[in-house]
Structure formats: C-alpha cells, structure tokens
C-alpha cells in the first residue's frame, strides 16, 4: 500500500530575504488583525461570533503563496487571515466586522462572511463543510469553460467528519476537477478533540479511499506549508485533478469569544506555543542572517499603523440605511 508522505518540520525549505520578509509580514499582519479584533470585540464594537486564527497563520500564508489571483478561494468562518492575505485590506475587513457598509460585504456578513468577488474570495462560510460542494462546482465551471484556474477550499478537521466532505471528495475525483482541499486541522471541533471526532486521526488517509492525492504537513511551519502547497498546486494544474492537503496546526485562542475552554489544559496550549509559527520563523530568519532586529521592529510598527488605521476606518464607517434592508434578496 502506498504510504502517504508526511513533510516534517525539519524539511524546512530555503528562503531569501525578500520572501522571508513577505511571509513574516503576512503572518504578523494576521495576528495583529486578530488581536485587534479581540480587543474591539471586548469593547463591543464587534458583535456576533468572532473566531480567531491566532496560531494557525502559517497555513493561510503558506497556501496562498501557491495561488494566482485568478484562482478561487473559499474559507470557513475563521477567515480574516485568509481574506487579508488574499488582498482584502485590513480596513475593509475591520469595517465588515463592525457591520459598516464600507465593509467588504457591505456590512451584511460580519466576521464570518467576508466576500470580495474581485479578489475571487468566496467567503466566509459558516455552515461547517457547506462550502465544499460549492468549491467542487466552481472548479467544475472552470473546467467546463477551460479557464485553467484552480479552486482552493479551506476547512477544519471538524468539517472532515461531515457528509459533505465525503460527498465532495467523491464528486471531485469523479468529475476530475481542480480543487485544492486544505484541511486546517487545529485539533478541536469547537471543544471536542480530534480523538473524539475521528477514528482515523491521520486525516490525509481519508483522501486515499477516494483516490485523491493527499499529504499532511506541519501547519506551524510556513515554509513547509508553502512547499507542500506549491507541490499540490503544481500537481493540480498538471493533471486537472483534486488534491487533499492536511495542515496540522493549533488554535491558541478559544473557539469563539463565548468559549470558556473547559476542554483543554493551559499546559497543552503552552506546549503548542513553543512551536509558534511566527516566533520560530523569526528565529530562523535571524539565525540565517536574512533579517535584522531593526527590520522586525520597523515591520511591527508598520503593521500596527495599518491595523490602527483599519480601526479608524471602521469607526468612521457608516451604517447601511434601514430602507435598504430588503435590497439584494433578489437581483434587479
């Protein structure tokens, strides 16, 4: 039987100054945006559900490097980071979380429903696994129209227990459509740990039964994720077939802002933080002499400024008139 290859952390890819800076900047920007979102949530500026991506940054950043602007991206409700890396500005994201009409979804969606058609960013989908069939259909449409684009679909390991995951993998292989399925395995489906939700915890093995090429990668290592994603995307573009990439990662913060975290220990979280994707990557860059402390400080300041401006933009934003409530239920 074919063994599923697993890329270990030690197989770190090589990186130069510019690309290293870019990856670091993207990961740091996500974390800064998320920390600010949490702050604004506690100030009751952001309401509803808020799911933060802190700890998982290397996954979105690593995978996005492999995509072009013509590829489709679909995400879960924990998607602020993906949206940001995809090119939706922090201010548009923050305004959306505020519910202001300057937001990327006109304020209609909020934190869980970021959309930007011009960036081919299709949510922000909050029914777990509900967007997987959409990804298959979008890839099918691209195939029929011979566009040559791929569709990247991010979802958690919780989604991999849903029927739609299995239906979608089966459909994708039957249709032979170019979908990159990215499982962000953060080990908890809300508060239920992996061992209680999956009998087979090497999730990449679920691809085998459907005849889908599959790999697991250390999702705390941005270079490893990037390398695995590039390999996957190369395969998809060459064959037109789907690929299943599992990124094993960890969510530092609670599932949402309502979560008291009764299901895991502080020690466990502490252990995972030792593998922090931003800190370990920073250490690597410093060690290899690819970046200086001064450059990091400058970067942090620039990011802080960008995020503060995003808050100002959201604060200054306006509410959609109530008269528009029923607009966009149907097309005009």
């Amino acid at each position: 039987m074919k063994e599923t290859p697993v890329i270990e952390s030690k197989q770190r890819g090589q990186v130069d100054h510019n690309h290293g800076m870019e990856l670091l900047r993207q990961m740091k920007s996500i974390r800064a945006l998320e920390d600010k979102a949490a702050e604004m949530y506690s100030k009751m500026k952001i309401r509803g559900f808020l799911h933060l991506y802190v700890g998982e940054e290397a996954v979105a950043v690593g995978v996005m490097q492999s995509l072009t602007q013509d590829d489709n991206v679909l995400c879960t409700y924990r998607e602020h980071g993906h949206a940001l890396v995809r090119g939706i500005s922090a201010r548009k994201i923050m305004a959306e979380m505020y519910g202001k009409q300057e937001g990327c979804s006109l304020g209609r969606g909020g934190s869980m429903h970021l959309f930007d058609k011009s960036k081919k960013f299709f949510g922000g989908n909050a029914i777990v696994a509900g967007h997987l069939p959409l990804a298959v259909g979008m890839a099918l449409a691209d195939k029929k129209q011979e566009k040559g684009d791929i569709t990247a679909c991010f979802f958690g390991e919780g989604a991999a227990a849903e029927g739609e995951f299995h239906e979608s993998l089966n459909l994708a292989t039957l249709f032979e459509v170019p979908v990159l399925f990215v499982c962000e395995n953060n080990r908890y489906a809300m508060g239920t740990a992996l061992q209680y939700t999956h009998h087979e915890q090497n999730l990449e093995k679920k691809g085998v039964g459907y005849g889908i090429e599959a790999t697991a990668v250390d999702g705390m290592n941005v270079l490893a994720v990037e390398k695995a994603a590039r390999k996957a995307v190369k395969y998809i573009r060459k064959t037109g077939k789907p690929y299943f990439l599992v990124c094993n990662t960890y969510r530092y913060r609670a599932h949402s802002m309502f979560d008291a975290e009764l299901y895991r220990t502080k020690e466990e979280v502490k252990e995972w933080k030792k593998r922090d994707p931003i800190q370990t990557f920073t250490d690597q860059l410093l060690k290899q002499g690819l970046i200086t402390e001064k450059q990091i400080k400058t970067m942090d300041k620039e990011i802080e400024k960008e995020i503060d401006e995003a808050v100002d933009y959201a604060e200054a934003g306006t509410w959609e008139p109530v008269e528009d409530l029923e607009k966009y239920v149907y097309s005009k």
Partner: peptide, 9 residues
C-alpha cells in the same frame, strides 16, 4: 451544492 458552485462560476 456543486450546481450552486457551478452557477457562481
């Protein structure tokens, strides 16, 4: 769902 996705596409 795939039909919906194809319509989006």
């Amino acid at each position: 769902g795939a039909g919906i996705g194809a319509a989006l596409g």
